[in-house]
């Protein structure tokens, strides 16, 4: 039951993009088309779960045992960067079709706030391993949801007329604001 609450909270109530402001760069940059949005969400989901697992284990068995918690930022970001490289190489060799689908997004994920953000959040919230896994899956699901919804809206926006000053990023941001307002309606859903 607790896991269900974590899942719903991460996807709807505290959506990573629309409430916590993480992952805005890909949110604004990649969401112009629906298929790129789907591709990006898949890549992020893949990396996020793996990265959370590895950083969680590192934190508890290495950083805390040696009392070097202040190295958390460096260690985490290096792990994520290395992971992304590794995944790219592995995908290229073993599943070329998947690499073709995700390939161009993978290097962008290193500087994606969501991955590092989730890794740090599960430590700050003192979750267990199982809870962090559920949280990571749920967050990537929420990220994908926000991205795909937004891409759908933006495809329509591109076809409509706007004032010159509003074209491009401004109208996208205002639309994102309205979408965030819609998601605010979910607060109080749980507990």
């Amino acid at each position: 039951m607790n896991y269900l609450i974590i899942f719903i909270t991460a996807v709807l109530v505290n959506n990573i993009v629309l409430s916590q402001f993480l992952g805005i760069c890909p949110f604004l940059g990649i969401s112009k088309r629906l298929d790129t949005a789907v591709g990006m969400s898949g890549a992020v989901a893949f990396v996020m779960v793996l990265a959370t697992l590895i950083t969680f284990l590192l934190q508890h068995y290495v950083l805390e045992t040696l009392h070097i918690e202040y190295l958390q930022t460096i260690v985490f970001i290096l792990v994520i960067a290395a992971l992304v490289q590794l995944i790219e190489i592995m995908l290229k060799k073993s599943v070329p079709s998947l690499y073709q689908a995700l390939g161009v997004f993978l290097p962008l994920i290193t500087t994606n706030c969501t991955i590092l953000g989730v890794a740090i959040m599960v430590i700050q919230k003192q979750m267990t391993l199982a809870e962090s896994m559920v949280f990571a899956v749920a967050t990537s699901f929420g990220f994908g949801l926000a991205l795909i919804l937004f891409a759908g809206i933006r495809e329509q926006l591109a076809l409509s007329e706007q004032p010159k000053a509003m074209e491009g990023t401004p109208i996208a941001l205002i639309t994102a604001g309205i979408l965030a307002m819609a998601f605010m309606g979910f607060s109080g859903l749980v507990g």
Partner: peptide, 25 residues
């Protein structure tokens, strides 16, 4: 109150960039 919450951030930034675009396309 909207402006200190999540949606307000998006809207405020969008409007600021629109203003900047209007002044300096």
């Amino acid at each position: 109150l909207l402006f200190v919450m999540a949606p307000g951030a998006f809207i405020a930034l969008g409007l600021l960039i629109a203003v900047k675009n209007a002044i300096n396309p």
